[in-house]
Write a protein that binds this DNA or RNA. Sequence first.
DNA 1: TTGTAGGCGTTATCAA
DNA 2: TTGATAACGCCTACAA
Lengths: 340, 340
Amino acid sequence: MTITVKDVAKKAGVATSTVSRVINDHPSISIATKEKVRNIMKDMGYVPNISARNLGTQSANALGIILPPFLTKEQVGNPFYLELIYSINQAAVDLQLATVIITGKDNEELLNHVKQMYAQKQVDGFILTYSIKNDPILHYLMKETIPVTLIGKPCSQRDGLSYVDNDNQLLGRCSTNHLIEHHHQKILFLTDRQEDQVFIDRYIGYQSALKQANLPVFSPKILQEKQDWQEFIPWIQREGITGAIVMDEGLALKTIQALSQIGYEIPADFSLISFNNSFLATLTHPFLTSVDIQIHDLATASVKQLVSQLTTPTTRQQPVIIQTYGLIQRETVGQINTKD
Amino acid sequence: MTITVKDVAKKAGVATSTVSRVINDHPSISIATKEKVRNIMKDMGYVPNISARNLGTQSANALGIILPPFLTKEQVGNPFYLELIYSINQAAVDLQLATVIITGKDNEELLNHVKQMYAQKQVDGFILTYSIKNDPILHYLMKETIPVTLIGKPCSQRDGLSYVDNDNQLLGRCSTNHLIEHHHQKILFLTDRQEDQVFIDRYIGYQSALKQANLPVFSPKILQEKQDWQEFIPWIQREGITGAIVMDEGLALKTIQALSQIGYEIPADFSLISFNNSFLATLTHPFLTSVDIQIHDLATASVKQLVSQLTTPTTRQQPVIIQTYGLIQRETVGQINTKD
DNA sequence: TTGTAGGCGTTATCAA
DNA sequence: TTGATAACGCCTACAA
């Protein structure tokens, strides 16, 4: 029924081992036989059986994408993950790797799935798509020295951990500078999550930009509950804040709405700059000025990191920091009205 | 190094076949030996090697999720897919199946990946997450009688195709009725894509609800280009439209914005009801009244359908239509102001 | 109810 | 440069 190396070997008048070598482009096979065998493979429509290969090579030819245990509808909706999955898979396919999804409704379930996938040899390693404090998943993977690449920076010092991240301090600095260049002087930093390493780094960048420009640094505003907003908006007016760096595009949209309710015009009265450059940025006017974090590069680099762990397990991986970014100027940043 | 059936067998003083039977819970093994072997497996930390099993059973123990070849940032951002992936994986894990992602930058590449994954026996079958006209992917899978379950209704008659869908005509009818109950009389249907089977069905439901209520039926308004909006908004005013069924929550947000620009208050002057109940619905006020399409049920049913194709390839699958839905009332539907 | 033995399709280790 | 042959770990007749 299915065509195997044996069939190809017989037809080609060579041994199965030769066919196998041709498949793997082994250097010690003459060009002539390679040609011959390849033609026959094509003629017969031969396709290698990956399970059999995996059994032989003791590998899985697959990487696992660990998604965060989603808690809220908001997180599931986060466009970041789908784009990441998509880009990781594209990079993986280029290397003949399959991409397996790993989820769980909570950390315990997720950890079980991770363990199982690895123990059953269904994946060779993992890409962990999020970085949080005291993550039991990351802890387990490192303890067992299972190949893993983290997307994002580890929250605490993790020796030898392979990770790929944006230069979030740089992004924080550049976005802040963008507002400074537009003559803003009282610039805020807004977030809806503070445990996040991404937040910490960007906030550091924000601080450094302001200090360098001799402008006031504000402590980050955490906006989660309704009450946070109720205190926040009057406070902005009182303080005469004119601009903000916003961690998340969803949050930016909410902020714009809250400000319009007190009659602020964007960007005439207030400027915002956000991150990710997702579809949210161009959903409604004013379109969001946003920092593109190059998800594609992040994904490609993470796959590369993981693969090099797999091929050379001994050598330590240097973290990769994506330096490129895009400052996508749209409609939420303007010169500040200095006439008052 | 790794523990195999052989090791377990030796320690338990039984044959490897017995161990194998215990693993698969074969009925002809005595409870006593089952117990014994299981304990030993646990003690030794035995985990079956899936590649080996797959090789033996000629299966892959995995299903492939085919994602649409994404064209635009908007589509990548669509929260629907991530939620679907997540739910499918949860359902698959329960059945001990792995979930493999399949993508491509265009139909050609996607088709190649699909072919390859199946030929290499990396997946047993596919879940196709979208339904479009003349889809070469679906065409190929059906021609080759490869197990597949479609999420959504096929655009043209496809004998014997397994699919899982909402009752979109029902959803179209119910959402329209919801506006009718609020005394709306001139109700529109808004979409940003018209090739879509989902659109067609919901529009049919819209029509039937209006006809039954003896209210005017409008042809669907397609809103894609800027120009569409420029013509649309004045037209609404002229015609005195007071409500709309909107295919997509992103589109609903855009519509609300366009209407506010001409001074309309939502829902006092205009009501909207949309679909999916994604995080977009509660991003900004007014929060969207939305029809929840039960992605979780869709996912679970699709996995079940696919698995039953795999286990009993001969019997025909009856399509599954999810009848339940949630009408999530929020802030965009109100009684129409009848005083004018 | 259990054991024996062969096979699943590749790769890897020897020799030749 | 190639060919035999033995793994790889599990499943499944068939036999006992």
